[in-house]
Structure formats: structure tokens, C-alpha cells
């Protein structure tokens, strides 16, 4: 019985995908994002400027709850 159809509140920002239902607002991803493309609003991660995102993947690497991850790579868009 595998997952499937787990969508939650997932929003596809192109470069980044965010599932607000899983975000616990710890602030780790925003604190260590090198370009400040994301920030916390009302204890949830939000995109401030998607153009700033370099898809470095550090937010995905360090999110304890897998609520943020890199979406389509540039060459796939």
C-alpha cells in the first residue's frame, strides 16, 4: 500500500514545490537559503522571489519535514 495521491496543500512554483500542510515553520530552510528566495509568513514557508531561487537544493536537503523541494530543473522546463 504505497502513498499515492498525497497532495496536501502542495503548490508548484516551478523551480520549487511547497507543501504547506507538512511545513512546521521551523525556519531552517529560510535561514540557510543562500539567496533569500523564501521566507516565513505566519509560520509557513513562502516564496518571496522565485527568480532569486538558484535551485541549489539546500532547503530540500535540510527541511526536516520534506515540505519544500526543488521542482523542474531549468533544462526540463
Amino acid at each position: 500500500m504505497k502513498n499515492k495521491s498525497i497532495k496536501g496543500n502542495e503548490v508548484d512554483h516551478g523551480k520549487l514545490i511547497i507543501n504547506a500542510d507538512w511545513c512546521k515553520g521551523c525556519g531552517i530552510c529560510t535561514a540557510f537559503c543562500p539567496t533569500k528566495a523564501i521566507e516565513l509568513k505566519n509560520e509557513k514557508v513562502t516564496v518571496v522571489d522565485i527568480d532569486k531561487c538558484t535551485q541549489c537544493g539546500l532547503c530540500e536537503l535540510r527541511c526536516p519535514d520534506y515540505a519544500i523541494y526543488v521542482g523542474r530543473k531549468k533544462n526540463e522546463q
Binding site: M1, K24, C26, C63, P64
Partner: peptide, 16 residues
């Protein structure tokens, strides 16, 4: 994934 997010506290390093 059907059991996520984990029960761990916000910012607990265990998930990472």
C-alpha cells in the same frame, strides 16, 4: 508518505 509529516517537533534534526 501517507504517515507524513512525522510526529517529531518543528525543527527536530531527526527528519533531516
Amino acid at each position: 508518505a501517507e504517515d507524513l509529516p512525522q510526529i517529531w517537533c518543528p525543527g527536530c534534526g531527526h527528519g533531516i
